[in-house]
Design a protein around this nucleic acid. Structure first.
Length: 257
DNA sequence: ATGGCTGCTTTGAGCAGA
């Protein structure tokens, strides 16, 4: 089974690229973030034509998440589209059970800057998200938490750690959140394997950040105990960041036996 | 390669992303 996450930065703009990538990479389950598409305008027909069933929770302009499930894999069940007890207009959560795997797809708030209201919102959101994860893992050992976490967990996930130190995406409270989620019994699937140094999942559109590989690793696939033992690979598909009209994020793909 | 981001919005300057 292949499980993937990709912040597409607008499904409207990225749909052709997404369809091409699905055909090439053949993932079984894909979590998308930043679809920026309200549900009534979700391109369900195109996705189904490509051989995937979709569930989604979107809104106009910002945010929006979706789960794509390849035909024959299973039916998304027990769908959740919000954090319990956390009133929020922003569509950032989509959980579903597929083929015995509980998949939680997050678009964690960006936080903008550590002295901003958006950063406080990010930390509040993460507290509520952590409570959801604690409940989910107690019910589902085969839990996968995937998405754009907007957190670079360690200095080795940052092209220039000194430049980014204490900044949003790298600040100590954000990294503490990541460790708390790990401490629930999750593994960072990317770190289960030897990886090339300076492997990132996001590069700024500006200042030639991608060709210079000035990126961050902020997109993740965390796996519970029942999946960690079956995980045989995790990689970031850098190729998908190349060419015309790329997303600023690359997909992350984990494989399971 | 002497450049300098992209996508969205009550279409156009401003916001947001990270």
């Amino acid at each position: 089974m292949k499980l993937a996450t990709w912040n597409v930065n607008s499904l409207g703009v990225r749909l052709p690229r997404l369809l091409g990538w699905l055909a090439r990479a053949q993932p079984d389950i894909v979590g998308l973030q930043e679809t920026k598409t309200e549900d009534a305008k979700f391109p369900r027909a195109e996705i189904e034509q490509a051989g995937y069933r979709a569930v989604f929770a979107g809104q106009k302009t910002y945010n929006g998440v979706a789960l794509l499930v390849r035909d024959g894999i299973g039916t998304p069940d027990d769908v959740v589209t919000a954090l319990p007890g956390f009133a929020d207009e922003q569509k950032r959560v989509l959980a579903a059970t597929v083929a015995g795997v509980r998949v939680v797809d997050f678009y964690v708030p960006n936080g903008q800057a550590v002295d901003s209201d958006k950063y406080l919102y990010k930390l509040d959101w993460c507290r509520a998200a952590g409570a959801l994860l604690a409940a989910e893992i107690s019910r589902h050992p085969a839990l996968a938490v995937i998405g754009d976490f907007n957190i670079a967990p360690e200095d080795r996930d940052v092209h220039d750690p000194d430049l980014w130190r204490g900044q949003v995406l790298c600040s100590d409270p954000e990294r503490a959140v990541f460790r708390e989620w790990i401490s629930l019994g999750l593994k960072d699937s990317f770190r289960l394997f030897e990886q090339p140094p300076n492997t990132f999942s996001w590069w700024d559109y500006r200042q030639l950040a991608f060709p210079k590989n000035r990126g961050l690793r902020i997109d993740h696939i965390l796996v519970g105990p029942a999946l960690a033992g079956r995980c045989v690979a995790c990689r970031i598909d850098r190729e998908a960041r190349k060419g015309e009209k790329p997303s600023d994020h690359a997909p992350v793909v984990a494989e399971f036996s």
